[in-house]
Simulated assay, not measured.
Amino acid sequence: MLIAMAGLPGAGKSTVADALGRRTGWPVLSVDPVEAALLGAGVTSDQPTGLAAYLAVGALAEHLLRLGQTVVVDAVNAAPEARAQWEDLARRTRTPLCFVEVVCSDVDLHRQRLTDRRRDLGDLPEPRWDSLDQRREQLAGWSGPRLVLDSAGAVEELVDALVTELTGTG
């Protein structure tokens, strides 16, 4: 199965994806560290490093899917083109696809998470709250099938529910 996380920066996608990976042993492929590595390798930020990171993660995901592994992709996936990449990958590998959109219904908590976030990602800048409008609009216009999780709750409870939904077990 291909599980593609989606949601705004700071909503809790990575926290949920990482907890899911720890719980199940499924590999979690995150786009942000790949983009940070590209920047750290000297690829300049005026080049499409975000697109390159999505494509690199897609190539790794394809390899793991062809080995028969379930893969969790951790990315914003706000743009329809980004989500189409995972749909195409699922078709090519004949793999079931599940999008999981993580939202945070508590706006103050979401803003605080993003403001306080300090990841060790080198030259990759953290997004600012006031820079999320386009991504927010893209996600609001998404009508495709997905599971929606509210990260304002306890992460372990979210992961329990997610594992049950994805595997039919507890």
Rank of each mutant, 00 (worst) to 15 (best):
L166A: 00
D120L: 10
P33C: 06
H110A: 07
A36T: 05
A6H: 03
S151F: 08
V100Y: 04
P125N: 01
L89N: 03
A19Y: 02
E137W: 08
Q85S: 07
R66N: 13
S45P: 10
A56D: 11
P48K: 07
S30E: 14
P145S: 14
R91C: 06
F99D: 02
A59T: 14
L166K: 09
V31Y: 10
V71L: 02
L51D: 15
C104V: 06
E87P: 00
L166H: 05
T164R: 15
G25H: 08
A82Y: 08
D150E: 12
L8K: 09
T164S: 14
G122W: 03
L8F: 07
E101R: 15
D116C: 03
G25L: 05
G10K: 04
P27C: 01
L149E: 08
D160N: 06
D106Y: 04
P145H: 15
R22E: 15
A6Y: 00
E126Q: 07
S151A: 15
P48C: 08
G10H: 12
F99A: 11
L67N: 12
G168P: 06
A61T: 10
A79Q: 15
E101W: 09
A75D: 09
E62T: 08
G58A: 04
A11F: 00
L29H: 12
V102W: 12
L114D: 05
R135H: 08
D106R: 12
V28S: 01
A78T: 09
P127W: 01
R119I: 07
A61C: 03
A53Q: 07
T167Q: 06
P96W: 01
A19C: 08
G10T: 05
Q138S: 10
V100A: 04
A90R: 08
T164G: 15
W142V: 04
T70E: 10
D106C: 04
M5Q: 05
T93F: 03
T93V: 10
G50Y: 02
L139M: 14
A52P: 03
D116I: 11
L114A: 06
R83L: 06
L60S: 09
E101D: 01
R118E: 14
L29C: 04
S131Q: 14
A79M: 11
S45F: 11
A56S: 09
R113G: 12
V57N: 05
R23H: 12
G144V: 01
E81I: 06
P33I: 11
D120M: 10
L162T: 03
V76T: 15
D108W: 00
P80C: 01
L60C: 03
A61D: 06
S14G: 12
T93W: 06
A59N: 04
P125C: 00
D150K: 08
V102K: 09
A152E: 12
F99M: 05
Q138Y: 02
G42C: 04
L158H: 04
E156Q: 14
Q85A: 13
P145N: 13
S131M: 10
P9S: 13
L132A: 04
L65R: 00
A78V: 09
D74C: 07
V34W: 02
D160M: 00
D123P: 13
G21Q: 01
